[in-house]
Design a protein around this nucleic acid. Structure first.
Lengths: 100, 100
DNA sequence: AGCTTATATAAGCAATGACTTACCAAACGA
DNA sequence: TCGTTTGGTAAGTCATTGCTTATATAAGCT
């Protein structure tokens, strides 16, 4: 049931942009704050949520922390989607044209 | 960029439970309200969000509307996850043990 | 026609959440 | 050692949101 945390974490646009940035290379908190044009505490708070969802991790180097994306959270969400997928396709196959 | 809507829709636990119920068989709004133990308007509001995310659709039969899950929204989210996956795995491969 | 059933929308409210500024501790550099 | 940099936490504010009750509409039923 851990995909709940992941969904909440990724549902916020700012937080998702942070995560997307961290999927390519590590960034420090300060870098992220500058790039996202929000305050450093705001970034720290978002990173805590992303950490709890296991979407990011960090390495410490002196006073700086290098955050980067981690596969665990995404894997949780992938598993959830896959567990839904067959049932949803089945339902749709039985009755393919419900108005949206 | 439509996965934004999907993420927000599925992030709410009540709404996700409604969606999960609709993945097996169609339900009317009244049935859902009774099963979820919330008011009918609350269900209608959740269903609107799920509709906008293309996670559910409905068929009308007299005064009743049979809602059921639809693959489009989930497909959006699947695509998004897959587009992230390789980069995240790559980042993790380069630096595999960041503290969470 | 009148009554009931089914659902959507409107309005209001209390809780949550995403930001801000203020502050703190820890590690660096002169 | 002292001032600076870095980032986490605390507290407060404002907007959002998930619920409720009230209301409107449309389709059965007698």
């Amino acid at each position: 049931m851990t995909y709940q945390t992941t969904l909440v974490a990724l549902a916020d646009p700012t937080r998702r942009r942070l995560f997307e940035r961290l999927r390519r290379r590590p960034h420090t908190v300060g870098e992220l704050a500058r790039l996202a044009a929000i305050s450093q505490p705001a970034v720290s708070q978002h990173l805590r949520v992303l950490r709890q969802a296991r979407l990011v991790g960090h390495r410490q180097d002196g006073t700086r922390r290098f955050y980067q994306a981690t596969p665990a959270g995404l894997a949780d969400l992938k598993r959830y989607l896959e567990s839904m997928w067959d049932d949803v396709l089945g339902a749709y196959a039985r009755s393919p044209e419900p108005r949206s």
